[in-house]
Amino acid sequence: MKYVILIHSNPQPWGHPTDRFTEEGRAQSEEFHAASAQQFDALMEEINASGEFVTAMALADPASSTLYGWSPANGGEHLRTDGPYAETKEQLAGFFMIDCATRERAEEIAEHFAQPGGTVELRPAMWGDGDDQ
């Protein structure tokens, strides 16, 4: 089963790792950040070795995105505007894709991504054609 781990965060200024740039993250000590970076490396090592890690990507500042909308005018007009997509505080900052045997295992991995300032979302990918029974 494939899952994506979505990192929603509000780094100011935009930057990675996001927890270094959030208000809550900045309030933490250097030791805290060093320890969590180490734990993160250990997790990545583990899921790389187990083959569960599929891919990951950090995303650039949402202000740099371009948005394409659609309007019924003129037989389906394409509307182009500048980002960010949503005027919400937290934005999609990056994602990880994992491939796990069970949902429990995916949850076990995802909870390691929790960090000061931001919310981590685990979401299953749609997959295959299912079971006929």
């Binding site: 089963m1 990918a125 749609m126 997959w127 295959g128 054609d129």
Partner: peptide, 8 residues
């Protein structure tokens, strides 16, 4: 909760 399109 279904994660396959035909099942959903």
């Amino acid at each position: 909760l279904a994660t396959s399109v035909p099942e959903q």
